[in-house]
Amino acid sequence: MSEHQLILLLKQADKKALKMLYTENRNSFINFARKFKVSENDILDAYQDAIIALSEKALHGELDNLKCTVKTYLFGIGKYLLFEKARKNQKRVLDFPLEKETYNYKTIAEDFLGEAPNKLERLLRKGFTSLGKKCKEVLILFYYRGYTIDEISEKLNYKDKNVVKSQKSRCIKQLREKINK
C-alpha cells in the first residue's frame, strides 16, 4: 500500500489500515525507543499515544502535505512523547537528544509537514543511495531502527561487535566523502 493510500484510509478512520500501521511499526518503534533508556511500559504507552495522535491528525486532514513517511512522522511523535514522559517522571534520561527542549507534540509534529528537504538532506539521500547493501543495512539498523551494536552483530551474523563498529565507521566515512564531493 502506498503512503498516499494509507493516509486516505486513515482519514476515513479505516480500522484495518490503522491496525496494519500499528502492527507493522510496533517492533521497530520499540527497538528505536530502547536507545533512550526508558521502561518497556513507557515505550508501549508512548507508541499507543503516538498512534492515537497520528490517527487524530489524519482524521483532521493534517497529513495531506506530509513530506516524510507516515512511519517517520509516527516515530517523531513517539520520540517526543517519550521525552515528555521521562520529564514528567523527573528522571534524567541519558543520551536523550531533546532534553532541554520544550515539548508540544502538535507543534513539533507540524515540523514534518510541508517542509522540503534542505540541501544537506538531499546530499545525504543521494550519498546514502549510492552506498553498498551492507553499509545501508548497518546504518539503517543503527540510526533508523535504533539497534545496538550487539543486536546488529547478531542480526547480520557478524563475528563480533568490533566488526560492526568498524563497518559502521567505514560506512559513515564513505557517506561523508560522498556528501563532500
Rank of each mutant, 00 (worst) to 15 (best):
L113M: 14
Y105P: 11
I51L: 12
N104S: 13
K168E: 11
G146T: 11
N41C: 09
L123Y: 06
E137N: 12
G61D: 11
L21N: 14
Q48A: 06
K67F: 05
I108A: 07
G114C: 10
L9T: 01
K79C: 13
L63D: 15
L44T: 10
L113Q: 10
T102L: 14
N31C: 07
F112T: 09
S166A: 03
D14V: 04
F96R: 06
I7D: 01
Y47E: 04
L8C: 12
I140D: 02
K181G: 15
L66S: 09
I7G: 02
Y144M: 06
D64V: 02
F83C: 06
L94A: 09
N157Y: 05
N31V: 08
N118K: 08
G114E: 11
R176F: 09
K16N: 13
Y73A: 05
I43E: 03
S130E: 14
E3G: 12
Y144R: 06
A109N: 03
V138K: 06
S28H: 08
C171D: 03
D111V: 06
F36M: 05
I108C: 05
D45I: 10
A17W: 01
Q12L: 10
G114M: 06
N25L: 08
N25W: 03
K71N: 09
F32I: 02
L9C: 02
K178I: 12
L113Y: 04
L113T: 05
D45N: 13
K15D: 08
M20I: 15
L131M: 13
K11G: 04
L81H: 00
Y158D: 01
S2C: 05
L66M: 08
T72P: 03
F36V: 04
E40R: 10
D42C: 11
I77M: 08
T107G: 01
Y144I: 09
D150I: 02
H60K: 15
V38K: 12
G127C: 05
